[in-house]
Computed example of a mutant assay.
Amino acid sequence: MTQQSLSKFEEHLQDILQYRVEKELLIIKNYPRIIADYDRDLIIELMESLLNNVYCFAEKTITITITLQEKLLIIYVKDDGPGFSKKELLTATEPYYFQNKNSHFGLGLTIVEALTQKHVGNLKIVNSIDGGAIVSAVFAIKVENLH
């Protein structure tokens, strides 16, 4: 982990998103300008894997919310797709899970969960009350100073 601004992570996220023009992407940030200790490369790899997964299921819009609560960095990714079935809510992070026989091998959320745990965090998947899926990744970070 290295000491860096959270805005650096957001800049890289913007770089990733500029090539994803087929869906509307909204980024909502809810954190102060801070310097923190976190593994930027690991979180970026996690976000790339998560975005690759969500792009398969979103219909038109993906919303990414980045927030800081105390010393927890929380990233919510919400789509407007069909959401998870009851079975998927229990099994979607298992290796080689796939939604149907015609879909790809299911390593996307397995990788995202492993990367989250590597950063001493956790991953949760739920359905939104207004439709679509929400995946949240929570990371413990060490906040150095506020600006």
Results as ranks from 00 to 15, higher is better:
Q3H: 02
Q4P: 05
Q4L: 14
S7N: 14
K8G: 04
E10C: 05
E11P: 03
H12M: 09
L13E: 01
D15K: 13
Q18L: 10
Q18R: 11
R20L: 11
R20E: 08
E22V: 09
L25S: 05
I27Y: 03
K29E: 11
K29W: 05
I35D: 05
D37T: 07
Y38M: 04
D39T: 00
D39W: 00
R40K: 15
L42M: 10
I43T: 05
I44R: 03
I44A: 08
E45G: 14
E48H: 12
L50C: 09
L50G: 03
L51F: 08
Y55W: 10
A58K: 01
E59C: 06
T61S: 04
T61Y: 00
T61N: 06
I62N: 00
I64H: 01
E70G: 04
L72I: 12
L72V: 11
I74L: 11
I74H: 06
I75W: 00
Y76A: 03
D79N: 11
G81I: 03
F84Y: 09
K87P: 01
K87Y: 13
K87L: 14
E88T: 07
E88Y: 07
E88G: 10
L89K: 05
L89I: 05
L90A: 11
T91S: 13
T91G: 05
T93C: 11
P95A: 08
F98N: 15
N102M: 11
H104F: 13
F105K: 14
F105W: 12
G106L: 02
L107T: 05
L107H: 04
L109P: 00
L109M: 04
L109Y: 04
A114K: 15
K118Y: 13
K118T: 13
G121C: 05
L123D: 00
K124N: 06
V126E: 08
V126P: 02
V126M: 07
S128E: 08
I129R: 12
G132M: 04
G132I: 04
A133V: 06
I134N: 02
I134S: 02
V135W: 04
V138S: 08
F139E: 01
F139N: 03
F139V: 03
E144I: 13
E144Q: 10
N145Q: 12
N145L: 10
L146T: 12
